[in-house]
């Protein structure tokens, strides 16, 4: 027993008890959100390069506004202030990236309010929202201020020495093809040397960020691949039937909000289906709606609408794609569905 005195026994008065498992992969919501922010960084840099420093201002205003509005609403709702999880910053950044560089700042703030307030907090905050908040904000602004939302500047190479590129109004490639005019060349589209919303134009930067997210297992590869693939397929078939610039699949895939939407907005965890099968259905649905709006709708662009419509269908998709648990017979599962 003399040995016992030298052995240190643990102090059991401060132990924690909790349910198993006691291990965790140490992932957390802030980690996810800040990884998404990091993945968006290349696109942000590209946008500053092509549009000038005002792009950074618009993005920052949206982010700050989203965080502030979330904090304010949490306070009003007497909840724990949840801006630490970073989701408001992601929403703000995504919203800012879908706005034109010339957007007035009040519009950014209104958009942020709609995105966070009506898109997220009214449903009880992160996890409860049926629609992607950034898409909600963008669509609301598109309906409320259509002219400000569709004023595009002409882009021509590096604009790092400018506050904002020359405010000569240009058209986006999608507007061009909607009028059946040929769009810009492949490299301009791929690198983002085109008119459009702040964060939408540089395909290369968006793909880099998206692949990073897929590698980090933040998003499912099925959504961007099937989304973009569907758009490519439908426009490709249309192009084969009638080869006019309006149906050029390359322009459709590389321009507009498709890359941003497919990699960053459709993949929003809260509003996309839970399992892989559902994700495929969701992505194909997004692709079809986008193409239909682009080719036959009155808007040149339909990403946000497509995502919102499929968001609304997500619970239904979840319900019908939910697999049978291990060892549950097919019949029993259907009976209970």
């Amino acid at each position: 027993m003399s040995e016992q005195s030298t052995i240190r026994m643990p102090d059991t008065s401060k132990l924690v008890v909790s349910s198993s498992p006691h291990y965790h992969d140490m992932g957390s919501i802030p980690k996810i959100m800040f990884t998404v922010l990091a993945a968006l960084a290349p696109a942000v840099i590209a946008s500053i390069y092509f549009f000038g420093w005002r792009a950074l201002l618009v993005l920052s205003v949206c982010m700050v506004a989203c965080a502030a509005i979330e904090a304010l609403l949490c306070r009003l709702m007497r909840r724990r202030i949840s801006i630490g999880d970073g989701s408001a910053l992601v929403t703000g950044l995504l919203l800012g990236m879908t706005l034109p560089v010339t957007s007035p700042l009040w519009m950014c703030i209104v958009g942020s309010f709609i995105a966070i307030g009506l898109g997220k907090m009214v449903y009880g905050g992160l996890g409860g929202n049926p629609f992607n908040p950034a898409s909600v904000g963008r669509v609301a602004l598109l309906l409320a201020c259509p002219s400000a939302m569709t004023t595009w500047v002409t882009v021509s190479g590096c604009a790092l020495n400018k506050w904002v590129v020359d405010a000569t109004t240009g058209a986006t490639p999608l507007e061009l093809v909607a009028q059946n005019q040929p769009g810009p060349g492949f490299w301009d589209l791929f690198l983002g040397n085109i008119g459009g919303s702040i964060g939408e134009t540089c395909t290369l930067a968006l793909i880099v960020g998206g692949v990073f997210l897929i590698v980090r297992k933040i998003i499912r590869w099925q959504i961007p691949v099937f989304f973009i693939g569907t758009v490519f397929l439908i426009t490709g078939i249309a192009y084969m039937v009638s080869p006019c610039p309006k149906f050029n699949p390359m322009t459709h895939v590389l321009s507009g909000g498709l890359m941003l939407g497919a990699f960053f907005m459709a993949t929003d965890m809260v509003t996309s289906p839970l399992n892989r099968k559902g994700a495929v259905v969701f992505a194909i649905g997004c692709g079809i709606i986008t193409t239909v709006i682009r080719l036959w709708g009155s808007y040149p662009e339909g990403i946000s609408y497509a995502i919102l419509i499929m968001n609304a269908l997500t619970p239904l998709i979840d319900r019908y794609t939910a697999g049978r648990p291990f060892g549950v017979a097919r019949k029993a599962s259907q009976k209970n569905a």
Partner: peptide, 21 residues
Amino acid sequence: KQAFYNGVNDCLNAMLVAGGA
């Protein structure tokens, strides 16, 4: 108080974990 309970704020849940704190 024997321990700090960390988990669902519900008595039945707590009872299933080490019989509560």
